[in-house]
Design a protein around this nucleic acid. Sequence first.
DNA 1: CATCAGGGCCCTG
DNA 2: CAGGGCCCTGAT
Length: 332
Amino acid sequence: MTQPPGVEVRNPRQYSLVANGRLFPRAPFHFDGTFFKQSHFPNRLDHWTPGLFYQTIRIDNMLLGVKCRDTSQGREPSIELSVYYPSPIQDSVVSKTLDEIAFRYDLHADLAEFQALADRDTTFTDVFKRWKGMRASTQYSLYELLVVGLVLQNTQVRRSVQMLETLTQRFGTLVEFDGVELWSIWLPEDLSAVDEEELRALKIGYRARSLKRFSEQFSSGLIDEVELRRLDDDSLKRELLKIYGVGPETVRIIMSEAFHRPGVFAHIAPWQQKIYSRLFYNQEIVPTERIIDDINRQFGRYSALAVHYIWEDVFWRRRNEYIDWLEAEIRL
DNA sequence: CATCAGGGCCCTG
DNA sequence: CAGGGCCCTGAT
């Protein structure tokens, strides 16, 4: 494969094990559903096998490698977390890493109220049972998730994969630990000296403008992810929409996965509408307003989370069985 | 070869 | 608030 200009092959940074820790998610907990999202397009930023998940994470200006292993016993959820880095790290860094992982995967979430709503549902009984304890979650920081959201915009999966690959190879970092090679997304300030034309040369099209602009918003300190976590749903949405290149669909993804707001289900993209229509009504097409109303009526403060369960489930099913109507809508 | 739409968003009128 | 335009790419 020929690379666009500016992209070169790099050797991975070698990391070794420097710390271990343990996390105790609130029960019920579903490791695989929470750590690995089957609906996401394939990339090289993480590595999953059942009960095991690898990723990178930035803590205190360090780019760490992290391995999470499911060590749950019966009804007692637990995760063993291993941290990898080229040199020893302080205990404070380890505890920050544990806290950040716990937040990103919403490990302390109280799902009791959601579970009660799910138990009352008669259409997706098996789905809610299969994924009991799953969170709407993400491995990414807000900035990283925005980059992923950006390459998703107005294109097909194949090109999204291509754009993210090109960008990470040009600006990201490759690390190797525990026998796994992973790319990580750059920092917003890494693009400060890069102009829009240079980004366009990487074939990301008009997204170059958004990437440039929102990276500046981040590196200038205008957006503070930790601060945003404190806001109520409406304020958070308002702040997110101020980010250049963020509209209703990207907000939906971010609110659900990065900020764990299970009740925000107010937007359905056209391709999702077709899939929801099939899943919820077994019809070709149902008006989005009706879908939104119905879901909100049934699942209230957990409408987005409920849809997340059904959405992920259909993509997991797709791994094993061929669902023809779904294939037609997904398009690689 | 041309045209078009795709896992949105910005901007304009 | 509806609708045009936008980088690219593969499908038709």
